[in-house]
Design a protein around this nucleic acid. Structure first.
Length: 746
DNA sequence: CTAGGGTTAG
């Protein structure tokens, strides 16, 4: 036996793939083959095991049950690498071997069929596994365990639970491994109740004393954000393994407690527990300091581990350092779907869609099969209608490959089409999708808001309530933006109440949306009250408040709000300055405006953009410094646009500067700017000087070039809208928004 | 048993 083993080892290490003929005795016996299979297990080479199996059949050697057992072991060993799992060949080979198993009658051995069942589960062929299980004339606890584990690891959580119950009913006593396979299926908030029942079962049966069961339970509670329970379980583990420590690092990391995760890691090192590759991955996903962790990886020799490098690529791409991510990715000996997806989402985030498409092509060339997550990452990058072509292409690919059946992909498509402004496609995708998750409702509601279909959004909101979904911070923030748009104060207030009643997480964007809603609905005091209640307002919220003061005609309060913000240690951005400058314009604060405009460049190193310049032109010219405004425009580094000429023209009307006005109007026409507004302004300008002939001439020009360009529309909230308000508490009502659309006559 | 890529808002 030992000589046969040596032969096998020799073949694998010294004479790879030169053919077995040189090694095998002329009449090979079965133990030689068995030792060959064993060495295949060691080297995790299922391909070579398969070739050896063929040779065995050719040599007319009769396989025994042990032959199949060793063969499948080689496959299971190899399955730790993703390439084998993903390869379609593996499935075909496993099928072929199983056919021989059946033909030779060895499928009567429960342990052999169970081994195949287990392997199919690992390959993700859960229906094969199920089929095998159903066919088995006899089963043992291990067979049940394998089926439960197969369901669980492939996301069939309810099936796993059902099989467990069935197992108990048929009188098979669960063991530690049963729970280890089953518990991960309960790591979802919707079935944590069942998870707790299993936990109770574990305690009663004493099976929970097993370290692996406790690890699984710890992870289960962590996934449902019950950190207290996770901590208790972790403390209960008598002999903590590296898996226990990793689980706890992951538990804190997944729930945003990064400092705690780091403390667990330090404690782990103190107790001299060996760090493994999952430790590093968990640390990286817990926002550990990237550079130091990278150094640690190199020093500890984990730099050869594909999973660790993948994680590093993800972390670098995630924090926007796409260059470092790319360097690492290019150094990877074996690229994989996860790291390439991370690269794609990094490029998409940066808006570099050329490289995104290139990566996608590479994905197909490397024979990787893009999955739902990869699809979503790509779709995420198509942010404006210039990408309609590529977007449709990816949609088509999804339809062809069947990936569009996944609700993740549909969510991605919905948000893509809403960015394209194609609300009809959004509606049809949404109505055709089977399971509508909260996220899908949110996506379609925000799509409506973005294209200005506020009443549709509110109708959808009521439907969503009827389907039993509770709105979250994102739903509310989207709807608040809709309220701001149409000045729907009453509903905005109800949304605010909902937030307070349900203790929704007051995230930055929600606070900002609330402040903005109150400002746009003309309730400055309420906006202030919300703003003051925020512990640490973020920059966006400060910006909203500053420009809100300006909009409401409180320019001095806007400026003191700006100073206050800086006292809090926040640095203004371009949007802050838009608020500050427009506040100065509203109040005619010319001197202050000039000072802030200079400060933007001198104190903060920002180059004023077109909008900042337009603010300045507006400020100077409205205050009557028309000449200075014109000089300002001439000295601008950027080419003036219609907004700037328009601001000057408006001031010409205010100050009755006919000559300059005419000159500006010509410029605007040269810019191909044929808006009704231009004609109206000119007409008003002539009228102010009593030049009625010119007024008539301009009006005729306006008609000739296609009417008035855009008619004003006013929205007035008329009815009490009780139904809509009630839908925040009740859910039995459909909604009929009562708006009067009034076209303002000219 | 533990792990890495993604969606809604801004």
């Amino acid at each position: 036996m030992s000589s046969a083993y040596t032969i096998g080892h020799y073949v694998r290490t010294t004479l790879p793939r030169i053919g077995l003929e040189f090694i095998l005795p002329s009449i090979p016996n079965i133990s030689v083959f068995h030792s060959l299979f064993k060495s295949c297990s060691e080297t995790k080479d299922s391909r070579w095991a398969f070739i050896t199996f063929r040779r065995l059949l050719e040599s007319n050697v009769k396989p025994s049950d042990l032959t199949f057992s060793l063969l499948i072991k080689a496959y299971v060993a190899d399955a730790s690498s993703s390439t084998v799992i993903d390869s379609p060949n593996t499935k075909i080979e496993a099928n072929q071997i199983q056919t021989h198993l059946r033909k030779s009658g060895f499928n009567q051995y429960v342990y052999l069929t169970t081994a195949f069942l287990d392997f199919y589960g690992k390959l993700g062929c859960i229906y094969y596994a199920q089929h095998l299980f159903e066919e088995m004339p006899r089963r043992d606890v291990v067979s049940w365990n394998a089926l439960i584990c197969g369901y669980s690891r492939n996301g069939y959580d309810y099936d796993a639970l059902e099989v467990f119950v069935q197992m108990l009913r048929e009188g098979f006593p669960p063991c530690q491994r049963t729970l280890v396979g089953l518990v991960p299926s309960c790591g979802r908030p919707d079935i944590i109740f069942q998870g707790k029942a299993i936990h109770g079962f574990g305690i009663k049966s004493g099976l929970d004393l097993d370290c692996r069961v406790k690890n699984a339970l710890t992870s289960m509670y962590a996934k449902c954000a019950d950190l207290q329970a996770a901590e208790v379980l972790f403390e209960e583990i008598f002999e903590k393994t590296e898996v226990s420590w990793n689980t706890m690092i992951g538990a804190y990391g997944q729930n945003g407690l990064f400092d705690e995760a780091m403390l667990v890691f330090k404690q782990m090192q103190k107790e001299r527990v060996e760090v493994n590759y999952v430790t590093i991955i968990s640390l990286l996903s817990a926002n550990a300091h990237l550079d130091s962790t990278h150094c640690y990886v190199i020093k500890t020799g984990f730099a050869t581990d594909a999973s660790v490098i993948t994680s590093l690529v993800c972390s670098y791409a995630g924090c926007g350092n796409i260059e470092s991510a790319g360097l690492l990715y290019n150094l990877m000996p074996q690229r994989n779907l996860v790291s390439l997806t991370a690269m794609i989402s990094g490029y998409a985030e940066k808006g570099n869609m050329g490289l995104v498409v290139e990566c996608f092509t590479q994905m197909l060339q490397l024979k990787m099969k893009p999955d739902a997550v990869a699809m979503v990452s790509i779709l995420h990058g198509f942010t404006d209608p210039t990408f309609i072509g590529s977007g449709l292409g990816i949609h088509a690919y999804g339809l062809k490959t069947g990936l569009c059946a996944d609700c993740l992909v549909v969510n991605g498509l919905i948000s893509m089409y809403s960015k394209f402004g194609d609300i009809e496609t959004v509606f049809s995708l949404f109505s055709e999708m089977g399971e509508k998750q909260l996220i899908s409702w949110n996506s379609v509601i925000s799509a409506c808001i973005q294209v200005g279909r506020t009443s549709d959004a509110m109708e959808l909101f009521c439907q969503m309530r009827m389907y039993g979904h509770s709105p979250d911070a994102i739903t509310i923030a989207s709807l608040l933006a809709g309220c701001s748009e149409v000045g729907f104060l009453q509903f905005g207030e109800r949304l605010h109440n909902y937030v307070l009643r349900n203790n929704l997480d007051m995230e930055d964007f929600l606070e900002t949306a609330l402040v903005d809603m109150y400002i746009k609905c003309g309730r400055l005091e309420s906006a202030e009250r919300v703003f003051k209640s925020i512990k640490e307002p973020c920059l966006a919220t400060w910006n909203t408040m500053i420009s809100g003061y300006g909009l409401s005609g409180h320019e001095h309060r806007a400026l003191s709000c700006y100073s206050e913000m800086q006292e809090q240690g926040l640095k203004p951005d371009r949007i802050t300055f838009l608020g500050v400058l427009s506040a100065c314009t509203h109040g005619g604060l010319v001197w202050e405006g000039k000072r802030y405009f200079r400060s933007m460049r001198e104190d903060f190193g920002m180059i004023p953009g077109l909008q900042h310049n337009a603010c300045m032109v507006d400020l100077l010219s409205r205050a009557g410094f028309l000449e200075e405004a014109v000089i300002f425009v001439k000295n601008m580094e950027v080419e003036p646009d219609s907004a700037i000429w328009g601001a000057l023209l408006t001031s010409c009307c205010i100050h009755q500067e006919l000559k300059l006005g005419e000159c500006l109007a010509k410029r605007l026409l040269l810019l191909d700017y044929y808006s009704g507004g231009l004609y109206v302004l000119m007409s008003n300008l002539y009228a102010s000087k009593g030049r009625w002939d010119d007024v008539a001439r301009v009006r005729k020009m306006m008609k000739d070039t296609g009417g008035d360009g855009s008619s004003g529309i006013s929205l007035i909230e008329v009815s009490s809208l009780e139904k809509m308000n009630n839908s925040l508490c009740l859910s039995d009502l459909s909604l009929n928004t009562n708006y009067w659309q009034l076209s303002s006559p000219h």
